[in-house]
Design a binder for these strands. Structure first.
Ligand SMILES: [Zn+2]
Ligand SMILES: [Zn+2]
Ligand SMILES: [Zn+2]
Ligand SMILES: [Zn+2]
Lengths: 143, 143
DNA sequence: AAACTTAGTGAGAATCGTTCTCAACAAGAA
DNA sequence: TTCTTGTTGAGAACGATTCTCACTAAGTTT
């Protein structure tokens, strides 16, 4: 089991959630993922660890992980994708609509300017991550 | 008929699209909208102009308008919302998840910094509008 | 104006992602 | 081990979007 998965389990447990077999499997999958995965993809991978896992449980576990701040949900088209996120401050997610890789970028320069303007307008952002859809460098060259 | 609607019709016609009754109705609704509307809302309003319009045609017309750059699609939760967009340069959409009002903000200061960083990473943004979900000033105070 | 070609149409079925329901289960406390 | 109750899987239900297909009408050609 990965360290990341262990940390998440510990945190969930501390918050009063039960650490069940299916949850263990989903957490392990998410912790190991190198790109954002769809719920269906997470289900397929989780079943290699615990064959009995159901799709509903994947959704439920993703909800829990998101509520506890261990995961962020990302949308490409109609499909919902999930991603473990490290950065805490306001930052951007560059989401490649081809390979679904998510790159995080951050700069105090524009974050500061943006936050100032949001305050000026009186808008309160609910998410700390802003999504930019497009094509990553690799996928541009291989198109 | 609004000027905006007429301009859009002219542009579509020039691109080879037929200007049909249902399309006229949908275009008129979108051109007059002061906030983002859901396809169902657009349908209801369009039927006041042309009672026979079907939901499928609303979706199809929205697709055309989007493909031709007269409209941007915005997502709040699962629902798809549409919005006529004026700004051409890179800008932000502040989307209130309560009242669905969309405010556009723009500043060369952070746009420049952001574009520079996107280029540095080699990421090519497909959309000129970046969405920030949250609560507008009005809805914050009345919550 | 009439005929013609074919893009566009409405109704409803189909599909997709997600949520709900509920009887059965099992994690963790005692 | 027993008990409590949070959690589960299967499938039904749901809401948004897309598809199908026979029919219609926009715009072009006569
Ligand atoms: Zn992030
Ligand atoms: Zn890519
Ligand atoms: Zn815009
Ligand atoms: Zn609002």
């Amino acid at each position: 089991m990965s360290k990341r998965a262990r940390d998440i389990q510990k945190a969930l447990s501390a918050s009063g959630y039960r650490i069940t077999q299916p949850r263990r499997a989903v957490i392990e999958v998410v912790a190991r993922a190198r790109r954002s995965l769809s719920p269906e993809e997470i289900l397929a991978r989780a079943r290699k660890i615990d064959p009995g896992v159901g799709l509903a449980t994947v959704y439920r576990t993703l909800d829990v992980l998101q509520a506890e701040g261990h995961l962020e949900r990302v949308r490409i088209g109609n499909r919902g994708y999930s991603l473990a996120c490290s950065e805490k401050a306001l930052h951007f997610h560059l989401i490649c609509e081809r390979c679904r890789t998510v790159t995080e970028i951050q700069s105090d320069q524009f974050s500061g300017a943006l936050i100032a303007q949001l305050q000026a307008v009186g808008f309160e952002s609910r998410k700390s991550a802003i999504e930019i859809i497009g094509l990553c460098a690799k996928c541009q060259s291989s198109e």
